[in-house]
């Protein structure tokens, strides 16, 4: 299975290794999409975790037992197609390739599997056709 998670690290555990154990002990593939981790401060990470279901559940349990709060990622970036003028300004701003042009038609395509929710597109879109939803 594969799921995007939001992890909240209390300041007391933020300096402990977690990803190491998820990878090494539970054999999970951890893709860090966004991280804000600083010494002695509360941290936040958005990760995509994939692996066997039991390993996944074990991983979540492990994180929770160490005081990390685990939430499913509910925020998403939505492409409002009716507002999109099909220009292409977003395609060089999107760092993950989620927004791209289909060639030769030059039509915008949005692949939300590739979206890392950096939100750069929201203000880069002159037509304001990209929206963050929670």
């Amino acid at each position: 299975m594969r799921q995007k998670l939001v992890l909240h690290f209390p300041s007391t555990v933020v300096e402990q290794p977690f990803v190491y154990h998820l990878v090494k002990d539970m054999k999970l593939m951890v893709n860090i999409l966004k991280a804000n981790i600083n010494p002695r401060k509360e941290g936040r990470m958005v990760v995509e975790v994939s692996g066997e279901k039991e390993d996944f559940l074990e991983g979540v349990e492990f994180l929770q037992s160490r005081g990390v709060k685990v939430f499913p990622l509910e925020q998403e970036i939505v492409w409002v197609k009716e507002k999109c003028t099909q220009c292409g300004a977003c395609t060089v701003i999107c760092p993950s390739g989620a927004l791209s042009l289909k060639r030769p038609e030059m039509e915008i395509q949005f692949d939300d599997d590739k979206c890392i929710i950096c939100e750069y597109c929201i203000k880069a879109c002159p037509a304001r056709a990209m929206e963050a939803r929670y």
């Binding site: 003028t85 099909q86 292409g88 300004a89 060639r103 030769p104």
Partner: peptide, 23 residues
């Protein structure tokens, strides 16, 4: 420009339109 990459000197630079070709 429409291919998505242009070459400026030695550099390959991603290109994007602001004008809507489908429009």
């Amino acid at each position: 420009l429409k291919s998505g990459e242009i070459t400026i000197g030695e550099r390959v630079v991603p290109s994007a339109p602001l004008s809507s070709y489908p429009g």
